[in-house]
């Protein structure tokens, strides 16, 4: 029995199809509780990224209902979407950093959009960059950093405005083992501070020995 009260993310009979013969998934029921850290896995093309895109409103489901932090996404107007996105931090495999912005400005962007004061924002960004071990590289540009460092900047940007939900779409896909472990540790830390995390990956090794819940997407259906 799934309920809206206890869960921060709730999907009820959700389907996504681009055409009649291109069905990504259908009849998905899923509940994620506040503070949970779940792995979303499945082969390439299983719909992991599409599911995350639906959660941060980059796409709309074809049918079914989605609730995020108590908000029914189908009732959300386009103008309200940015306000929901501020509650969600998104991390991508390709980092999606602005190459013409410094590391500091990339992270500060999340605070600038919510209109935080300059001083307060500066303080928070510096704190965040210290937390991910990049305090000495604030004036660097993304392309001057290694892949692991870029991913840490992306994580810093995603969490600097303290979102309650973090969606990570293959965040370790471009990283070596050591950097992957660093990212996982950062995620564990964020989760320990109360953030709900959905970590999408096709790499089974990341959750082999974990006690975390693993949601498997296969052939357009969820297999627990």
């Amino acid at each position: 029995m799934i309920s809206i009260e206890s869960s921060i993310i709730l999907l009820k009979d959700v389907s996504k199809k681009y055409s009649t013969d291109n069905v990504v998934f259908s009849g998905i029921d899923l509940e994620i509780e506040k503070g949970e850290f779940v792995f979303l896995t499945g082969p390439s093309g299983a719909g992991k990224s599409t599911m995350l895109r639906i959660l941060f409103c980059a796409e709309r489901p074809t049918s079914g209902e989605v609730w995020v932090d108590g908000v029914t996404l189908s009732s959300l107007s386009n103008a309200q979407v940015p306000y929901l996105r501020r509650k969600i931090g998104v991390i991508f495999q390709d980092f999606k950093l602005l190459s013409n912005y410094t590391i500091f400005d990339n992270v500060a962007l999340s605070l600038e959009v919510i209109g935080l004061g300059k001083k307060q924002a500066e303080q928070r960004v510096m704190q965040m960059l210290e937390g991910v071990g990049l305090a000495g590289k604030t004036s660097h540009y993304p392309l001057q950093l290694s892949g692991g460092e870029q991913q840490r900047v992306a994580i810093a940007r995603a969490v600097v405005n303290r979102p309650s939900i973090i969606l990570a779409d293959e965040p370790t896909g471009n990283l070596d083992l050591q950097r992957t472990e660093e990212v996982i540790m950062l995620m564990e830390e964020l989760n320990a501070r109360g953030a709900t995390i959905i970590f999408a990956t096709h790499d089974d090794r990341l959750f082999e020995n974990t006690h975390r819940r693993v949601i498997r997407l296969f052939n357009g259906r969820i297999r627990i």
Binding site: F56, Y83, L98, N100, S110, N161
Partner: peptide
């Protein structure tokens, strides 16, 4: 750039 700015919750 605009896509990324939109992703972090920027309004129109």
């Amino acid at each position: 750039e605009l896509k990324i700015i939109r992703l972090v919750g920027a309004t129109n």
